[in-house]
Amino acid sequence: MCKEIVLLSGSLNWLRGLLLLWVMATGLGGIAQRVEAAEGKADWKFEVQLIWGTNDEKPSGKELKEVEVKITEGLKGIFKWKNYFEVTRKKMDVAGGATQRLKMSDKCDVEVQSLGGSNVEIRLIGEGKCVNKVKQTISAGRLITIAGGDKNDTAWFVILKPL
């Protein structure tokens, strides 16, 4: 009986040591991750889409494409419109500290400035005027959507997808 107790207490000491090592390794990994995130990826690639939302069917004569299902479902979950059509899709590379501008439509430009690390400033330019500025922390996979209402109870959406 005493031998079993001695063996068990020895095993518990080992387990405690292993647990401590695991926690500290995880913590150090977290530090490294935070440092990496803070210093971050200076260069970012985006896919920028201009999407039109409406409750009507797809109008003929206009070159509109289907939006990918994941984005459509995401928008339907938030907004009231039933149908979403892609007007424009473009890609953008933004180097660290640089600014890139894309023309999405006759009236809409999107400008993205890298502020260093994971921070960017997104400027929406309508008819030559800066309509809106958004400073945002970027994370891979998380979409940034700037949207507004349009005539005839429709809406426009500018969606930036970090690649």
Binding site: G74, I78, L124, L143, T145, A147, G148
Partner: peptide
């Protein structure tokens, strides 16, 4: 939706 939305 894994999305941040700014409605203007």
């Amino acid at each position: 939706a894994n999305m941040t939305v700014v409605w203007v």
